[in-house]
C-alpha cells in the first residue's frame, strides 16, 4: 500500500517546552491513524512531496480541520464552500460537482442556504469536515473533531470518519480514547513529546485483554469448586453470587466454568472477560515514561 504521508523526526517546541520530540510516523491509503496527545509539525512528506520545499503541491493533497472549525460565521454554507473551493484551486467547471459531493457526504444539503453563524456546533463541525474533503485530498487531518458535540452528532461524525478512511489516509488527533477504538485502524500515543505506543487497533485490543473473568450467578454458589479446573490461577470471591477469576492467558477456562455452574443449577447470569480501559493502558504506558528524564 502506498505511503501517503511520512513524517520524520518531528519536533515541536513551545518556548523551551518540548511538545513533540523526534516522532516518526506514516499513513497509507485506507488507514486511520489516531494520535493521542499533542500534535505538531516538522518534516512532512505528503505523497513524497516535501511540505517545506514545495508547499503548494504538498498542501493541495492535504485537507485540514483544526480543533475549531475555520468557518466564517457571516457567510452561508454554500458561499463558504465556494470560497474554500476557490482557495483550493479547484477548477471552475469541477467546483459545482465537488461542492455537491462534499455536502452530500457531510449531510449539509438541507442547510446549504443558511448562515453558518446560525447553525449548531455539530453542523459547523461538519462544515469544517466538508471543507477538508472538498478538494478530494489524499490526506485528511482532523484535530479533535468531536469535541463539544452531543452523543448523536458524535456517532454521526465517527461514522463519517470511518467512511472517509476507506478512500483517504486520515490522521485523527484526539484525547478521547474510545474515539480511537471506534474510528481508527492504527494508533500512536504521545506523552511528553515522545512516542510511547505505536500499534494497530487489533494490537491495541490485545493490550486491552487481561487474564480475568467476572462471574455472577442467580443463587449463591461455592466458587472454590472451580479451583480444580485447568488454567485457573486465583479466585477472588466478592459475594456468594459474585467473583473474579484470574486465569492463564493461553488457557482460557471460561467454557469449563460455564459448564460447571450450569450443571450445579445455580443459574449463570454473567461470564464476562474483563478488559482494561484505554485510560488504564494510557496511564500504564505514560507512567512508565515518568522515570525517564524530561526532554530538554
Amino acid at each position: 500500500m502506498a505511503t501517503l504521508i511520512q513524517a520524520e523526526q518531528l519536533s515541536r517546541y513551545f518556548g523551551d517546552h518540548c511538545a513533540v520530540r523526534e516522532v516518526d510516523f506514516s499513513v497509507a491509503r485506507g488507514e486511520v491513524l489516531g494520535f493521542l496527545g499533542p500534535n505538531g509539525a516538522g518534516q512532512i512528506l505528503i505523497n513524497g512531496i516535501d511540505l517545506l520545499d514545495r508547499p503548494r503541491e504538498a498542501k493541495s493533497q492535504l485537507g485540514y480541520l483544526p480543533d475549531n472549525p475555520p468557518v466564517y460565521r457571516e457567510l452561508t454554507v454554500q458561499e463558504y464552500l465556494e470560497y474554500c473551493a476557490a482557495l483550493h484551486r479547484i477548477p471552475r467547471p469541477a467546483r459545482y460537482h465537488a461542492i455537491e459531493k462534499s455536502k452530500r457526504r457531510c449531510g449539509l444539503e438541507s442547510v446549504a442556504g443558511r448562515l453558518i453563524g446560525n447553525l449548531s456546533k455539530g453542523f459547523q463541525q461538519r462544515i469544517g469536515i466538508a471543507q477538508a474533503i472538498l478538494h478530494n485530498p489524499q490526506i485528511i487531518i482532523l484535530d479533535e473533531p468531536t469535541v463539544g458535540l452531543d452523543p448523536i452528532q458524535i456517532r454521526e461524525i465517527r461514522a463519517l470518519i470511518r467512511e472517509l478512511g476507506s478512500e483517504h489516509g486520515i490522521i485523527l488527533s484526539t484525547h478521547i480514547l474510545p474515539e480511537v477504538q471506534e474510528s481508527c485502524t492504527h494508533v500512536q500515543i504521545i506523552d511528553q513529546g515522545s512516542l510511547v505506543l505505536k500499534e494497530t487497533i487489533a494490537g491495541l485490543e490485545r493490550h486491552l485483554n487481561t487474564a480475568a473473568l467476572t462471574i455472577r450467578t442467580r443463587d449463591p454458589f461455592d466458587f472454590r469448586r472451580l479451583q480444580s479446573l485447568p488454567g485457573i490461577d486465583n479466585i477472588e470471591i466478592i459475594s456468594p453470587e459474585h467473583c473474579r477469576i484470574h486465569h492463564d492467558l493461553e488457557n482460557n477456562p471460561a467454557a469449563g466454568i460455564a459448564e460447571t455452574i450450569i450443571a450445579s443449577g445455580a443459574g449463570l447470569l454473567a461470564l464476562v472477560p474483563e478488559k482494561k480501559t484505554m485510560e488504564e493502558i494510557f496511564l500504564a504506558l505514560t507512567s512508565r515514561q515518568e522515570a525517564e528524564e524530561p526532554c530538554a
Binding site: 523526526q9 519536533s11 518534516q43 516535501d50 517545506l52 520545499d53
Partner: peptide
C-alpha cells in the same frame, strides 16, 4: 528539507 533546531 529537514528542520532541526539549528536550521530553525
Amino acid at each position: 528539507m529537514k528542520i532541526s533546531q539549528r536550521i530553525h
